[in-house]
């Protein structure tokens, strides 16, 4: 991905270079390109996970409010089960269980010999045709699969928290609004779509923005799933390198790399805050909240 290395011709023997050339060489090593690439991985993960988690949350909250008892139980169960379990447990065990579940399901259809037990003590084995992805697949597919598992796991975990936030937001919409809609003869579905959902976002936004900021900072959990994120690379690059095998030996530089991450996270959260405050203004328009009322008065004057 980094093209032919080293980047510059003069990098052949770094130990003889003046510091500025040394730094230019150092910052263009293969490991550094991996580090730069991991920023893209993280941004991509956030871009995919956030909408998926929001969808999970919306479904969870809608299910929890359902008048049909089993559906409501399912929604509430999902929220309680995920919120009550430490994230790390999900990331260590849920992913392995999910991965095994997928392979077990595939094995029922593609394996010729189903007589062998799939789970044998701690071991899990299916025939090679049932592996997901196949062992023969290119490394990129293994990465894509790990990434998809990561998105799904993040979405499950953050979806449960989002569900709780959205559930609360739905409850916060003034009852009078819903009753008025009912009085106009709207069906339950119409009340939900036309009155409840458009009005609940403003109540959900503070909670959801919290979740978004937590999600931004939760990406180091990715390494547990075999994906190397920015924190992994910062740690790897910053850890002390001894002179023997490393062309660029240095002491413990983790503090500098973590400072770079700090700047990245601060800029990213600041940009997020600006975007969220615009969203808040957008959602406040015409709402029966303090902010919405203030807006109405400004227009009326």
């Amino acid at each position: 991905m980094a093209g032919p290395l080293p980047m510059f011709d003069f990098c052949a023997d770094p130990s003889t270079l003046p510091w500025y050339s040394w730094l230019a060489c150092y910052l263009t090593t293969g490991t550094h390109f991996n580090f730069y690439g991991s920023f893209v991985t993280v941004l991509l993960l956030l871009a995919v996970t956030a909408p998926v988690a929001l969808a999970f949350g919306f479904l969870g909250a809608t299910a929890a409010r359902s008048p049909v008892a089993p559906v409501s139980l399912l929604g509430r169960g999902y929220i309680v089960a995920v919120r009550g379990v430490p994230d790390i447990v999900y990331f260590m065990f849920f992913v392995i269980a999910l991965d095994q579940g997928i392979e077990w399901f595939k094995h029922l259809f593609v394996c010729a010999d189903l007589s062998q037990p799939v789970w044998n003590g701690n071991e899990f084995s299916v025939c090679s045709a049932a592996k997901v992805p196949l062992a023969t697949s290119a490394a990129i597919w293994h990465k894509a699969y790990a990434f998809a598992l990561a998105v799904f796991t993040f979405a499950i975990v953050f979806g449960a928290f989002a569900a709780n936030v959205i559930y609360g937001a739905m409850q916060a919409v003034p009852r009078a609004q819903l009753e008025t809609a009912e009085a106009y003869g709207m069906t339950q579905g119409q009340v939900f779509r036309r009155v409840l959902v458009p009005q609940m976002w403003i109540y959900a936004l503070p909670g959801l923005s919290n979740l978004w900021l937590i999600l931004i900072k939760a990406t180091p959990l990715l390494f547990l799933l075999g994906i190397q994120d920015i924190v992994y690379w910062a740690r790897e690059l910053g850890s002390a390198k001894t002179s023997g095998n490393n062309p660029y030996p240095h002491g413990d530089w983790r503090v500098y790399y973590f400072l770079a991450l700090l700047v990245f996270y601060l800029v990213f959260t600041r940009v997020s805050e600006i975007a969220l405050s615009r969203l808040t203004a957008r959602f406040s328009r015409g709402q029966a909240t303090r902010a919405g009322e203030d807006m109405r008065k400004v227009v009326a004057q």
Binding site: L5, P6, T29, G30, T31, S128, A135, K241, N246
Partner: peptide
Amino acid sequence: QDVVRIGTEGAYEPYNYIDQATGE
């Protein structure tokens, strides 16, 4: 024809580590 995948930590020089120059 199968691929045998070998897991390693990549952080224990000189047993297994990431090559600083290439990132492999």
